[in-house]
């Protein structure tokens, strides 16, 4: 997402009840290598439901609206 920092993405998603990881993910060397300050990571697993994915997507739309 252009122009929105991962920590801001994370805060908005958190309010929507979606937990994501933001920042360096303890992987500074690779982040430096690709010149990325921070990323947002949604870690999906087999137990996540379609509804949870829909909630995530709705949350991402909210981030876009809030910071656009």
């Amino acid at each position: 997402m252009d122009n929105v920092h991962p920590h801001d993405v994370g805060t908005v998603l958190d309010q929507e009840g979606v937990a994501v990881r933001t920042g360096h993910h303890c992987a500074q060397p690779v982040m430096d290598r690709f010149e990325i300050a921070a990323t947002t990571r949604a870690s999906l697993a087999f137990y996540n439901t379609r509804r949870e994915v829909d909630t995530l997507i709705a949350g991402i739309r909210k981030v876009q609206e809030f910071f656009s």
Binding site: H5, P6, H7, D8, G23, H24, A37, A38
Partner: peptide
């Protein structure tokens, strides 16, 4: 290091007062 945010702050101090200040860097909205 937790966010990856970096900032540089530069000052121009004259007669004991901060007459110029600038910052560079990337970070979140806050």
């Amino acid at each position: 290091p937790l966010c990856g945010d970096r900032v540089r702050v530069q000052l121009k101090i004259e007669n004991g007062c901060i007459m110029g200040i600038g910052f560079q860097g990337t970070g979140c909205a806050i």
